[in-house]
């Protein structure tokens, strides 16, 4: 398994701000790698350093062992669709692609092919200024695909796409990996790429938090975190739990959660004390939980919360 992209000790400082700090990861050929992190964690800066658009303060970022700028005809090897890239509003979609193809040494027949591929063939002669966000996103993707690159770098590609567009994007990305291409796709939502990626690179505050396969991360996520119990004998249960002692918290008038408990332990415990149970569920952390835990383990600014408890579940009596 060879690395399509290698990032080694990469750093970027904007003045006194460390946007990216000693970041290292690899992207394998033939696999889809999700590049994840909250907004402002340094994803876009990393991708732009990789593509030679932003200068590197320290470390290296290479594609097939070479810096982007040292590649011969770079867009024939690397297709990039970056956020905040724009088009000239009076230029037609077709002309935009033609100009890129001409400058990049790509045959002009690719213009029609890529427009067809991303579903913009009907609006090829329309000025880009009239395009919706989703159409621009597709045109961005068409630009990236023009040179039939073996490496794709997509920065938040799902932004602005409708559900069908997202579905199409997912199958498209999977197909790219199946034909042996490497795809690095960034997102601030794990759920958005969960079905698509093989590997994950998670960063927070410019630093690497985790690089693993999605399967390993899912295994970590699947471990139990505690037991949720619904019982009519809440008072008796909490008394015997306090006697152990075991930590518990109430989640509903008749439901409590015992953190860290296993089904085996609680099964025996309940039988021993002869407590009636209506419901017995093992609590498991989801991928999203692990992701949040990993990325907020660092000092990200907390969201301001209103100064009251969680909103109670609305009942007929409660609504006025």
């Amino acid at each position: 398994m060879t690395s399509a992209i290698e990032v080694r000790g990469l750093s970027k400082r904007f003045g006194s701000v460390h946007a990216v700090d000693d970041l290292s990861f690899e992207v394998a050929q033939g696999r889809v790698t999700g590049f994840l992190g909250p907004n402002g964690s340094g994803k876009t800066t990393t991708l732009r350093m990789l593509l030679g658009l932003v200068s590197i303060t320290g470390g290296s970022a290479t594609i097939g062992g070479k810096r982007y700028r040292d590649l011969d005809h770079p867009i024939r090897h690397v297709g990039a669709a970056l956020e905040a890239t724009s088009f000239h509003p009076t230029r037609r979609a077709e002309d935009h692609l033609k100009s890129v193809a001409l400058a990049g040494g790509i045959p002009l027949r690719r213009v029609g092919e890529t427009l067809e591929l991303v579903g913009l063939a009907d609006v090829a002669r329309r000025r880009v200024g009239k395009f919706s966000l989703g159409m621009r996103q597709r045109l961005q993707l068409a630009t990236a695909l023009l040179g039939e690159p073996e490496i794709l770098i997509l920065d938040e590609p799902a932004n602005g796409l409708d559900p069908q567009g997202i579905q199409w994007l997912r199958s498209f990305i999977r197909h790219q990996a199946e034909v042996g291409h490497a795809v690095l796709v960034s997102s601030h939502l794990l759920a958005e790429v969960e079905e698509t990626v093989d590997d994950v690179v998670i960063i927070s505050e410019g630093r690497l938090v985790l690089q693993s396969t999605l399967a390993d991360m899912a295994a970590q996520a699947g471990t139990g975190t505690g037991m949720r119990i619904r019982t009519p004998e809440l008072d008796r249960l909490t008394r015997v739990l306090d006697a152990v002692p075991a930590g518990w918290r109430l989640t509903a008038p008749d439901t409590l959660v015992i953190d860290g408990a296993t089904p085996e332990w609680f099964g025996h415990f309940a039988a021993q004390h002869q407590i009636v149970l209506y419901e017995l569920v093992q609590e498991k952390s989801s991928l999203e939980d692990v992701f949040l835990q990993l990325t907020t383990g660092f000092a990200t600014p907390e969201l301001a919360m209103p100064d009251r408890g969680p909103t109670p579940f609305p009942t007929d009596a409660g609504t006025a």
Binding site: L53, S86, F87, H88, A103, G104
Partner: peptide
């Protein structure tokens, strides 16, 4: 105009050598 409409990102991806971009 490339900077005003941010098309320079695409131009620099196609032509990473910026001197060559100015020369064009």
């Amino acid at each position: 105009v490339e900077f005003r409409h941010k098309t320079v990102t695409t131009s620099f991806l196609v032509t990473p050598h910026r001197t060559r971009f100015v020369l064009g």
